[in-house]
Simulated assay, not measured.
Amino acid sequence: MLSRIAESLFWIGRYVERADGTARILDVHLERMNQMSSADQELVARRLLAVMGAVPEDERLGIGQLLDALAYDRGSPASIAGALGAARENARRARETVSSGLWECLNTTWYGLNQHRKDVVGTYRFCTWVGERTAMVRGLSDLTMSHDESWEFMVLGRSLERADMTSRMLSTRDVANSWVTMLRCAGAYESFLRNQRAAFGDEEAAEFLLLDRLFPRSIVYALTEAETALERLDPSNQRIGFLDDARRLVGQARSFLEFHQTADLLDELPEHMDRVQQACARASDAISRKYFSRAESLEWVGELS
């Protein structure tokens, strides 16, 4: 496979997952912000933008500026519209590899971005629509593409981004002030209740979103999926260690979470989230060095700072 095609597939997976994760985070915080004073809105908006890695252009921040930065700014890969546009552009570059159904879905999604009001009510509907469209993209990629190395690169990008976005979502827990809100943001509320079957608290909810091995949006599940994709792309017959830096980084992050026992998970949560985000960024760089040619014309698809 050409490196430029592999890179495009990898970033399709990342950008689609980024759009979905950003929509979930934005949707879950809008209702609370709409009921706050202007000063509180500005404080929450700055914290959300900092967590998401977006740099505000205006000194004053409110709901309007937040919506533009995280939802509608097509020039920023940190926004929903920007991520979906980047996913479509990468699909266009890999048009001979992605299925026609996947391309048509991304293309239709791109043209549907203009059909939404850019106020608070319109953004609620927009976030729901984005969740439905990104779920369709993932379903079409799984059902209409051969599960060969092209699909593995897409899954690899999706898994790394999902671990990163879940860690960012958990980093906003002080803003949300409710673990029920966090569970609903991840689409995990019903699964968590069925798994718990008893009274629960913040500690159990945090463990579920970080460590559950069967829930697809938990960080451990996403890192395990990324590790499996890396193994399939480059099986290793070594008896000692791994030459693949990306696989080592992902495996270390996954095993640290999985085997780290603590009675103060909530107090240590910021440290865990920083570690996951750094591991995902470093793994993405390692994947780029190993598999992709870093041509000057493709620099715009690089990792967010």
Score class of each variant (00 low, 15 high):
residue 247 R to A: 10
residue 161 E to L: 07
residue 192 F to C: 07
residue 172 T to A: 15
residue 162 R to I: 01
residue 112 G to I: 04
residue 55 V to L: 07
residue 98 V to C: 04
residue 274 D to N: 15
residue 131 G to M: 05
residue 241 G to E: 08
residue 159 S to N: 09
residue 76 S to C: 06
residue 220 V to C: 11
residue 206 A to K: 00
residue 105 C to I: 11
residue 39 A to Y: 04
residue 45 A to T: 07
residue 191 S to V: 09
residue 129 W to E: 09
residue 82 G to M: 01
residue 104 E to W: 03
residue 241 G to C: 11
residue 296 E to G: 02
residue 265 L to A: 10
residue 211 L to F: 02
residue 63 I to Y: 01
residue 188 A to T: 02
residue 84 L to H: 03
residue 18 R to Y: 09
residue 111 Y to G: 06
residue 32 R to T: 12
residue 125 R to V: 14
residue 298 L to A: 15
residue 190 E to M: 12
residue 253 A to I: 05
residue 165 M to K: 05
residue 69 A to W: 00
residue 90 N to Q: 13
residue 264 D to G: 07
residue 234 D to H: 08
residue 21 G to A: 13
residue 168 R to A: 03
residue 7 E to I: 04
residue 241 G to A: 12
residue 24 R to S: 07
residue 98 V to S: 00
residue 43 L to D: 08
residue 14 R to L: 13
residue 29 H to Y: 03
residue 197 R to Q: 15
residue 60 R to E: 13
residue 207 E to Y: 00
residue 251 G to K: 01
residue 125 R to F: 14
residue 58 D to F: 07
residue 17 E to G: 04
residue 166 T to G: 02
residue 63 I to W: 00
residue 213 R to N: 14
residue 75 G to V: 06
residue 38 S to Y: 08
residue 164 D to R: 03
residue 48 L to Q: 01
residue 150 S to R: 04
residue 117 R to C: 09
residue 28 V to G: 03
residue 79 S to C: 03
residue 41 Q to D: 09
residue 17 E to W: 00
residue 80 I to F: 00
residue 170 L to T: 05
residue 231 E to R: 08
residue 92 R to S: 07
residue 291 Y to K: 08
residue 46 R to Q: 14
residue 57 E to P: 03
residue 239 R to H: 08
residue 204 E to H: 08
residue 59 E to C: 02
residue 243 L to V: 10
residue 226 A to C: 11
residue 284 S to M: 10
residue 78 A to Y: 00
residue 67 L to N: 01
residue 259 F to D: 10
residue 196 Q to D: 04
residue 246 A to H: 01
residue 74 R to V: 01
residue 37 S to Q: 13
residue 163 A to I: 01
residue 156 L to D: 05
residue 164 D to H: 04
residue 284 S to F: 08
residue 178 S to N: 12
residue 113 L to P: 09
residue 138 R to C: 07
residue 184 R to S: 12
residue 246 A to M: 07
residue 20 D to R: 06
residue 288 S to G: 13
residue 210 L to F: 01
residue 290 K to H: 15
residue 29 H to L: 05
residue 291 Y to I: 05
residue 274 D to H: 11
residue 189 Y to I: 09
residue 136 M to D: 10
residue 207 E to D: 13
residue 160 L to G: 08
residue 14 R to P: 11
residue 152 E to V: 09
residue 121 V to Y: 05
residue 46 R to W: 04
residue 304 L to Y: 04
residue 30 L to G: 11
residue 89 E to I: 02
residue 158 R to Q: 13
residue 54 A to F: 02
residue 231 E to I: 07
residue 293 S to Y: 13
residue 151 W to R: 08
residue 105 C to D: 10
residue 164 D to S: 06
residue 234 D to E: 15
residue 36 M to N: 06
residue 269 L to M: 15
residue 298 L to Q: 11
residue 158 R to W: 09
residue 228 T to R: 13
residue 129 W to Q: 05
residue 76 S to F: 00
residue 16 V to C: 12
residue 56 P to W: 07
residue 241 G to L: 13
residue 286 A to I: 10
residue 35 Q to T: 12
residue 85 G to C: 06
residue 47 R to H: 07
residue 67 L to M: 11
residue 125 R to D: 15
residue 263 A to G: 12
residue 79 S to E: 03
residue 187 G to L: 04
residue 262 T to M: 11
residue 201 G to V: 09
residue 299 E to H: 14
residue 195 N to A: 14
residue 150 S to M: 07
residue 139 G to M: 08
residue 179 W to V: 05
residue 273 M to I: 12
